[in-house]
Amino acid sequence: MSEKSRKKFLYLNRRAPYGSVYALESLEVVLIGAAFEQDVSLAFLDDGVYQLVEGQDTAGIGMKNFSKTYRALGDFEVRKLFVERESLEARGLKESDLMPIVWEDEDEDWAEKPSIAVVDKAAMAELIAASDVVLSF
């Protein structure tokens, strides 16, 4: 696909990873969508920030723990994960509570670079406004 026809896709994740199917079905779209070579960003806000918290354990609720999939996003060329600072703070979370998610930069001898960027509400609003296709989950 030519550069001209690349669109900016933004996946907005606003719900906790368990309790509803939205986080899982959002991830399914992201993984399938990766094959289309678009400019992809993921945003995590509100309870959606819980999707990236490290050490998720679903044994007690009988749900599939799909949190490892986020770590594999770099292999799918999904490298831009934006987390809203205010949403973290409102839930007593810090960036260090999140999974270390990285992508490998082939231009720098496959150096691992962080995929997660914590941004404030204003930056998040700009990100949304600058996107062509916004899918909210």
Partner: peptide, 16 residues
């Protein structure tokens, strides 16, 4: 799900 991504690419506006 590729049909959803394709719709996003092909359409002027995707309305949810």
């Amino acid at each position: 799900l590729g049909q959803l991504i394709e719709a996003g690419i092909q359409a002027d506006r995707l309305v949810t």
